[in-house]
């Protein structure tokens, strides 16, 4: 078996060469340029130095922007998990026809343009929007609420926009769990909640980790949703990088910010990956 698979691969390694060349030339090389530009001390790019990194990491305002962005991703991820898990659990359990329908509902938003989805939320959250109209009509609010341009608004919209990234891996793992395990737990008198907490959730941990990583990476870096729903008052890293790169024409600062931002997102993602792995090891131990 291994020998056969090996024999297949030995003759085919060169097929990866074109893609590897494209990635070397148009992915790794630009990222290398990004790293080099971030090391220039001034916008005119004359002398080298770590000045830009000091600006990004030493300034309270910039540091605040970075932590706001990382926290924003975490909040959106938590909301996505809380709302997405039950949907995934039900989807994995229902009859095939209903499952296909639910999957369709989940997939539709991921294929609809992000600008379109975000625009829909502007119509819903705006001063004259659906929610405010409803709240006023029902007497829940005296005057229009400020939903657009608020962090709560951004978190809610990010959760909706990225929901499929959470639900799809969850459905896959939940479907793979042997239903006999939950049945055994119930038959032994554990009850639904306890079975869910002690059997279903631990077994679906790989799906939870995969979903959270995808949602986190997408939510923290979602330029369009962050800027359209958050407006100019709420500053997150993607907008900061964009402003420095195009408006202020300060390439070294934008590059340093991009490097720091990339590293932070990757760090959070790998920490989460690690956490999932140790938890899993403990569950099975």
């Amino acid at each position: 078996m291994t020998e056969r698979a090996g024999a297949g691969a030995r003759g085919e390694w060169w097929l990866a060469l074109p893609l590897a060349a494209v990635f070397a030339g148009f992915f790794l090389a630009p990222l290398g340029v990004l790293a080099v530009v971030s090391l220039f001390a001034e916008p005119e790019m004359v002398t080298f130095g770590l000045r830009q990194y000091r600006v990004v990491l030493g300034d309270t305002f910039n540091l605040r922007t970075l932590s706001d962005t990382l926290l924003l991703g975490a909040k959106a991820t938590v909301l996505c998990l809380v709302l997405g898990y039950p949907l995934a659990w039900v989807t994995a359990r229902v009859r095939p026809r209903l499952r296909a329908l639910l999957l369709f509902v989940v997939i539709l938003p991921i294929l609809t343009s992000v600008v379109v989805r975000t625009f829909a939320w502007i119509v819903i959250l705006g001063r004259q929007g659906v929610l405010n109209k409803a709240a006023l009509a029902l007497g829940l609010a005296e005057e229009p609420l400020r939903l657009l341009f608020s962090e709560v608004g951004v978190v809610v919209v990010l959760a909706q926009v990225q929901m499929p990234l959470m639900v799809l891996p969850l459905v896959t793992t939940l479907q793979k769990i042997d239903p006999n395990l939950a049945d055994a737990s119930l038959a032994l008198g554990a009850g639904r909640w306890r079975t869910f907490r002690r059997v279903v959730v631990p077994l679906s941990l790989p799906g939870i980790v995969a979903g959270c990583i995808l949602v986190y990476a997408a939510a923290a870096t979602a330029f369009i949703t962050q800027t359209l729903i958050g407006g100019a008052r709420l500053l997150y890293m993607p907008l900061f990088i964009y402003q420095q790169a195009t408006g202020a024409q300060n390439w070294p600062l934008a590059a340093a910010a991009a490097v720091v931002f990339m590293a932070s997102v990757l760090l959070v993602v790998s920490l989460f990956n690690l956490l999932g792995r140790t938890r899993r090891a403990r569950t099975y131990a």
Binding site: V33, A217, T221, P238, A245, A254, A258, F261, M262, L266
Partner: peptide, 9 residues
């Protein structure tokens, strides 16, 4: 990776 960082690079 943040798409914006790659776009800028």
């Amino acid at each position: 990776l943040p798409g914006l960082a790659f776009g800028f690079a």
